[in-house]
Write a protein that binds this DNA or RNA. Structure first.
Lengths: 187, 187, 187, 187
DNA sequence: GATGAATGAGGCTTCATTCAT
DNA sequence: TATGAATGAAGCCTCATTCAT
C-alpha cells in the first residue's frame, strides 16, 4: 500500500504539482481513504521527502558504481554519468521532475539533507572533471565548477522537454550531449 | 500601485513559490488591502500571466535586436544571446526564476500563449545554429535542435544556482559557457 | 441617465436576480462607472425600492381608473383588472417579475411600504367581488378573500411561464382566465 | 448530520433566501463547522439541488398514486391533487417555498433536470383535464394547457400567503379552490 | 455630473490533519 | 490496517460603498 501511495503521488505531483495535489487526489484512485494515507505517512511533506530520498539515494549509488570503476577514463566516467541521467528520463522521469521542481516544498532539516546529497552528486562530477584536467584528458584552464553546472544544466533541463517517444532515443541524446560537452559545436 | 504589486509579487513568488504566496502576503507589505489587488488584477493567475508576458516579450525583443544585426557572425550572435541570458540573472533573475518555475500555474490559453513565445525564442536560436552549420561556422552533422536545448539547459539552469556576488562575474560566466558550447572541454 | 440605469437594472435583475447582479454589471453595459451609479442612487436597495414603487404605483393608479368607472358591472371590473394584469406581461413583464421575486431584498420601512400598497391592490379586488356577491352578480357564500387570492394566483403566476410570443395572445389568455374564474371548468 | 443540515438550510433559505444565507449561517446553529458542511455536500448549489430533488420526487410520487387509482373520476383526481398541494403547505411549506423561489440558483444540468420533472407534474394535470373534457366531465372547448397553468397558479400562490393557523384550515381552502376551479364564482 | 482608486467585510471552497472506532 | 466524521485555518475572490478630484 505504501508503495502504491508513493507511486500514485509521484504521478500526480508530476502532473499537477505538489501544492495542487491534495491527499484526497492521491487516495481517490487507490480507492482508500485519507485515514489510510496518514497511517503510512506522518504528513504530506514526509511523503515528498521519501520521494526525494529514494531518488537521490538511488542516483548517488549508481554514480558511485561508475566512479569506482578504475578501468574507465575520466571522459568515459563523465559520459556514463550523462548517459545515466538521460536514460533515466524514460522510467525515472516523473520522480526526477518531482525531484527538481518540488524541492521547495521541503522545509528545514529536510531541505538541508537533500541539498547536501545533491551537492555531493555535483561535486563528484566536478572531481571527475578536475581529475581529467590534471591528467590531461580535458583542457587546462577550464573552470571545472562552472563547467559542471553547465553539464548538469544540459542533462537536468532535458527532463523538462525531452519526450522518449520522439525521433531521438535516450541513448542517442546522451551521445549527442557527450559529444557536445567534449567537443563543442564549432567547426 | 500596479507596478508595486507586480514587483512585490515577483519577489515573493521567487522566494516562496506561486502557490505558497497568498494575495494577502503580497498586499501586506504594500500596506494596501486585498481589494486593491483585485482592482488591478482580475485574478492571481492574471498577475502571473502579466509577469510572464513582460518577461518573454522583453527577451524576444532583445533577441531580435541581436539577430537583426547583419554584421555579426552566427557564433557571435549565439555568443550574444548566451551573454544576454546570463547577464540578465543579476537584474532579471527573480522574474526569470518565476518565469521558469511557475509556468505550470498558467492555464489554458495563457499557457498556450506563453509556450508559443518560448518556442519562438528557442527556434530563433536553432535557426542561428542551423545557419552557422550551413555556412560552415559550426560542425556539420550536429542535431541543431538538440544542441539548442543543450544550450538553453546551460543558461536556464544558471538561474537556479548562480549568485552574481560570487567570485565569477556574469560576464565571465557567459564567456565560460560560450567557450564550452563552441569548443567543448576535451583537450 | 437615471432612467437608463433603472431600465438596465430591471433587465438584469430579471435575468440574474437581484443578489446575482452587481452594480458593476449594471453600469458595465451603460459604459459609465460605479461612481455614476452612486450619484443617482444612494444604495442598491434604493434602486430596487424605486423599481417597486414605480411598478405598484402605476398598477394602483390603473386599478383605480377601472374601479372608478361607475358604468361597469362588478364582473366587468374584475374582468378588466385581470386583463390589465395579463396584458401587462408583454411590456411590464420584467418589472413585474422583479416586483414579485425580489421583494425580499427590501428591508424594514421599504418592505412595509410596499406590502401595504400590495395589500391595497388585493383588497380592492376583494371589495369588488364582495360587492358583486351583495348585488347578486356572484354566488353567495363564497369566501371572497380566498377567491381573491385565487384570482391573483392565476394572474401573478402567469408572469412565471407566459411567453407573449406563443400561440395564445395576452388578450386571449385574459379571456380564458376571466371565463375560468367566472364559470369554472365543469360541464 | 446531513439530514440536520438540510432541515436547517430549508428553514434559512425560506426565511432569508438562498443568496442571503451563508454556509456559515447554516452551520452556526448546528454548532458544527463549515468543514462539516463540505463533508456532506460538494457545494451550496448541490445542497439546493438535493432539496429540490427531494421535493419534486416526493410530489410526483404522490401524484402518481392519485392518478393510478382507476376508481376516481377525473374531477376527483383533480380535486385530490389540489388537496395534495394545499394541505402540503402545513408541513412541506418551507420546502415548497424554497422550491418555487430559489430554482433560479440552480445552473445548467441541475436546472434542466428539475424543470423536466416540474413539467411532468404539470402535464400530468393537463392530461387529467383533457381526459375529463373527452369524457364530458369538463366543458368542451377549454384550453386545457392554460387552465392547468391557472390551477397551478392558484395552488402555488397559496404558498406565498396562506398561514395554516388562520381561520381557514388547509382542508377548507382546498375545498374552496376545488369549487372555484370547477364552478367559478359567477351566479 | 462623473471618475477612479481604494476599502473591508464577507462569501464559497479547499485541505491537511486528527481521532475515535 | 483502515475508515469516516469532523475541524479550523487559510485561500481566492466579489462587491457595495466611500471619497477626493
Amino acid at each position: 500500500m505504501k508503495e502504491k501511495i508513493t507511486t500514485q503521488s509521484i504521478k500526480l505531483f508530476e502532473k499537477k504539482g505538489f501544492s495542487q495535489t491534495s491527499i484526497q487526489d492521491i487516495v481517490n484512485e487507490l480507492e482508500v481513504t485519507k485515514g489510510t494515507f496518514y497511517y503510512y505517512f506522518s504528513s504530506k511533506e514526509q511523503l515528498l521527502m521519501d520521494i526525494h530520498l529514494d531518488y537521490i539515494t538511488n542516483l548517488l549509488e549508481r554514480q558511485h558504481r561508475i566512479l569506482d570503476n578504475e578501468n574507465l577514463l575520466q571522459k568515459e566516467k563523465l559520459s556514463n554519468i550523462v548517459r545515466l541521467l538521460i536514460t533515466d528520463i524514460t522510467d525515472k522521469g516523473p520522480s526526477a521532475r518531482v525531484f527538481f521542481r518540488e524541492v521547495r516544498h521541503l522545509t528545514n532539516d529536510n531541505i538541508e539533507s537533500i541539498k547536501e546529497k545533491r551537492d555531493q552528486f555535483r561535486l563528484n562530477i566536478e572531481k571527475t572533471i578536475q581529475e581529467g584536467v590534471t591528467i590531461g584528458e580535458f583542457r587546462a584552464g577550464i573552470r571545472t565548477d562552472m563547467v559542471t553546472f553547465g553539464l548538469l544544466g544540459i542533462t537536468n533541463w532535458s527532463y523538462q522537454w525531452y519526450k522518449p517517444d520522439g525521433d531521438v532515443s535516450a541513448e542517442e541524446l546522451a551521445d549527442i550531449y557527450v559529444d557536445m560537452i567534449l567537443n563543442g559545436i564549432e567547426q
